[in-house]
Amino acid sequence: MERAKQSVERRYWLVLSLVYGVSLEIIGFAQGIWPVIFPLAAVVFIVVHAFANGQVLSGNQRFSTATPGIGLLAMVGGAVAAILRDTEIAFWAIPLLGVAGFAMMMWFLNRYGKYHHREKA
């Protein structure tokens, strides 16, 4: 039973980490309005994903999260992606940033994330 809970939790964090890594790529490479639209769509997706996985609970409105460090990690990654846009090193640095962002987010969420498992009635 415990192993099944860990599997659900890891899949939840995996999806969030993938969305973050792809968001860094879009912020770094996309042109026009897409660097603004995609992260907003990603936030909507994350909220829907949280509801679908029971992470926004009706009683006390807890939202699965990690420490405030996760927000700092996300902001720094987004800022670096924006700074790297249209630079000479963007071709290799932005994909590297996306992979590193995904890996760091996955590690951070697995280590410090609080996942609220649904109670079966």
Rank of each mutant, 00 (worst) to 15 (best):
V47F: 13
V48I: 15
W34T: 15
S64R: 06
W34Y: 10
F38P: 00
A42K: 00
V56T: 08
I37M: 05
I33T: 11
V43M: 13
A50L: 13
F38N: 01
G28D: 00
N60R: 13
F63D: 03
A52M: 14
G54A: 09
G54D: 11
W34P: 03
A41W: 01
A42R: 01
G59N: 11
Q61D: 04
F51Y: 14
V56D: 03
P35N: 09
R62M: 10
H49M: 09
V44P: 02
V56E: 05
L40S: 12
H49Y: 15
P35H: 10
F51R: 14
N60T: 15
V44Y: 03
W34E: 12
A41H: 01
F29Q: 01
F45H: 00
A30V: 01
F29I: 00
V48Q: 04
H49T: 04
S58M: 08
L57S: 11
V44M: 07
A52T: 10
G28K: 01
L57N: 15
I46C: 09
F38A: 05
I33K: 03
F63H: 10
V43P: 02
Q61L: 14
F63V: 15
V36E: 05
S64Y: 07
I33Q: 09
G59R: 12
R62F: 12
A52K: 12
S64A: 15
V36C: 03
F45A: 15
G28F: 00
F63A: 05
I46N: 05
V48S: 03
A42E: 00
P35D: 11
G28T: 01
I46W: 07
F38E: 02
N53W: 10
I46Y: 06
V44T: 13
Q61R: 14
F38S: 02
G32L: 10
G32Y: 06
Q55L: 10
N60S: 12
I37W: 06
P39D: 06
V48D: 02
I33G: 04
S64V: 08
V47A: 08
Q61G: 09
V47W: 07
A42M: 04
F45P: 00
N53S: 08
N60F: 03
S64I: 10
P35W: 08
F63N: 06
S58D: 07
I33E: 11
P35R: 04
V43L: 15
G59Q: 09
P35G: 06
G59W: 09
L57H: 08
A41I: 10
I33V: 14
L40W: 08
N53Y: 08
F51A: 11
L40Y: 07
H49N: 12
G32C: 07
Q61K: 15
I46S: 15
P39G: 01
F38V: 14
Q55C: 07
N53E: 11
V43I: 15
A42C: 09
G54E: 07
I46E: 08
G54V: 11
Q55E: 13
R62P: 03
G32K: 08
A50W: 07
V56Q: 11
A41V: 15
P35S: 06
F45T: 01
A50H: 10
L57K: 04
A50G: 09
G32E: 08
G28I: 00
V47D: 03
R62L: 09
V48G: 05
H49F: 15
